[in-house]
Design a binder for these strands. Structure first.
Lengths: 129, 129
DNA sequence: GTGCACCTTCCCCTATGGTGGAACGTCAAG
DNA sequence: CTTGACGTTCCACCATAGGGGAAGGTGCAC
């Protein structure tokens, strides 16, 4: 199948497929005589794996690492386990950060809502921050 | 004072100050006869306001908007209120997203820890994703 | 008179995940 | 015979917030 069809089958754009190939996430696609890329069902499966990896919050580089491991015949299982563990830690850290940022912003906002705008000092930029 | 000193006073780098000036966050600094930028205490206050804005999670573009409002003589109070309200919503959305992503990743990870690696199917990339 | 720290401008580079356009080739239908 | 939908390549660009280095000027101390 050609690039547009494969892209549609995986819920992506043709541009994204070319981009993935250029990054090494996909092996160079075989070409039909007219130079068009030819994709198999296997390629589409790989694309869907990429999608699942992204949905799991992995970066393209991490997904590439998994695919490369599988390529070398090694089982990526333990690598993926570590990846997921590290990602959980990372997510926890980011969630904590966002929650404390939210508390800070909520404090600024509460102050901004409660304070009389007339008390605004033109000598400074903004007393709310 | 010169750029390095002003930067240090605001806890930034000289490069950042030039960058802010180039983006319109800072008015073009007056120059001393040798062409060096000259900063006043007021400029350092402005830099510290930028820092506080960033600490509150605002983008440089949003901070620039506040500074520009103040520049035109208008009081940025209500603008800042709206900005903070929108940011709270945005933070809530991002936190919710991250938490649900975390749940999904935790599920993958639990499965990966509990599953026997020997049951790994070499025909697919990784059964954990 | 020279070394050193600081300043200037200009332009490219970082990471992320692609998108869009230009200029051109290919193929089937009308 | 031409139109349209697809394909190809390469190159530039989006946002974000600067960092890094080259090539050169300035000013002070030794």
């Amino acid at each position: 199948m050609r690039i547009g069809e494969a892209a549609a089958a995986a819920g992506m754009t043709a541009t994204a497929l070319r981009f993935y190939e250029s990054c090494g996430l996909l092996p160079p696609a075989p070409r039909s005589p007219n130079g068009y890329r030819e994709y198999t069902e296997d390629a589409v499966n790989r694309l869907q794996f990429i999608r699942r990896g992204q949905a799991a919050g992995l970066t393209l580089d991490q997904i590439k690492g998994i695919l490369n491991l599988r390529e070398t015949g090694e089982s990526p299982c333990s690598h993926v386990r570590e990846l997921l563990a590290r990602e959980l830690q990372d997510l926890d850290r980011r969630i904590t950060e966002l929650i404390s940022l939210r508390a800070a912003v909520a404090g600024f906002h509460r102050n901004a809502v409660e304070t009389d705008p007339a008390s605004c000092d033109p000598g400074q930029v903004c007393s709310f921050l």
